[in-house]
Design a protein around this nucleic acid. Sequence first.
DNA 1: ATAGGGTTAG
Length: 440
Amino acid sequence: MTHTLCLAAGDILRALRGAACPSSALHLYSLFRLRLGPSVPPDFAWSAAAFALKPIAAASSLPLLSHFHGHLLRSNLLAYPHVASSLLRAYSLLSPPAAHQLFDQIPPTTCNIYVLNIMLASLCRSSDLGSARAFFDDIPDKDIVSWSTMLTCYFSRGHLADGLAFFRSVTFTTDIGVDGVMLATTLTACTSAGLPLPFCRAIHGYAVRGAIPPSMHLGTALIDFYSKAGRLDYAARVFALVPHRNVMHWTAMICGLASHLRNNEAVQMFEKMCQRRLQPNEMTFTAVLSACVNAGLVEKGREFFKLMVDRYCLEPNIHHYGCMVDLYAKAGLLEDAYEVIKTMKVEPNVIIWTSLLAACKKSKNFEIAVQGIEKALALEISDENAGLYMLISDLYAMGGRWDDVLKVRRLMDEHNVWKKRGLSSIHVHEPQDLSSVVVR
DNA sequence: ATAGGGTTAG
């Protein structure tokens, strides 16, 4: 008998709630059913089913989901709104048409505000804006999540003005009010649309007047917004005021420092965060590695990359590999850069090949260039790759391989690839002393 | 002990 069998039902439920992968969730679920048999109290039964559905949806396995759906039908669990809504959410993430079909079968008595909001979110992701809005208008007792979902729908489809008008109508025509989630999505939309600083600051002012704390998502959005607006000092102030500071806040702050080329401070913050036993995620590593690239900190970068894989068990993605290639390439360590490309577990992209080949050009290293070019030419030809093709043609010219130069030029002509002018949107401001605000 | 909306990357 395994020791898990000795767990009480409550313990199994708790474990089930925290289960990350579907196999352990399903294992715990069947253990739970086995222990309590058919006499399981209903509220225990439906919460177990609802918990199990979350990792199934996250693993995006449709066969697994329809199998579990069958079980729910056989055991009459679908009549519980919690189970119906969790199942609907799982389907909406894996197969929107199937979610629509399931929604039509849910009886009116089970169809509460949770079910309606999940269906609205599903339509926002998969259907057109008009259908989503029509569905929203038909929801009888809209709550803050209904409004929040619709608001996100406008912004995610680029309807900034309509979204802002919708935001105003929440405050003027309803008594629902606005919360930190709505402010975070609004602020993010305004930031990425490049709206002027005073306008975006007004959103922060709104939160302050409404006594909405800069916790969780709002805090992250504010730190990111102020960094991008060139006000690292404000970003640091928000960071210092966040009530329950988490990885996202640290990551946004490290990102901000790195993008302002305050590289050593970015590295210091990263190290401080690790000392405080906070688990950095893959985004945190992208930020700190890019700081290492900016500052040419080869050894630090190498150390952090190793830390990410060995200590934090994170799988490096294209951004991480890109940083490592750039780090070595800029330091003239072309063998190391090419070694990263050869051993990486994802396909190298244009950025990575450009980084390597630009370094080859600079230090006139043709051996590695020739090997890289052959593989880089396998990429799909598009406008985005124009710079890479120019680089390849330059390298061939430097090596005196004129027939190959012509070949690349002809390739560019055939596919009508033009070199576009790049525009830099990065503004670097005067350094400010942040030491008093960043650390508390 | 109870579902749903959301934040970060050249």
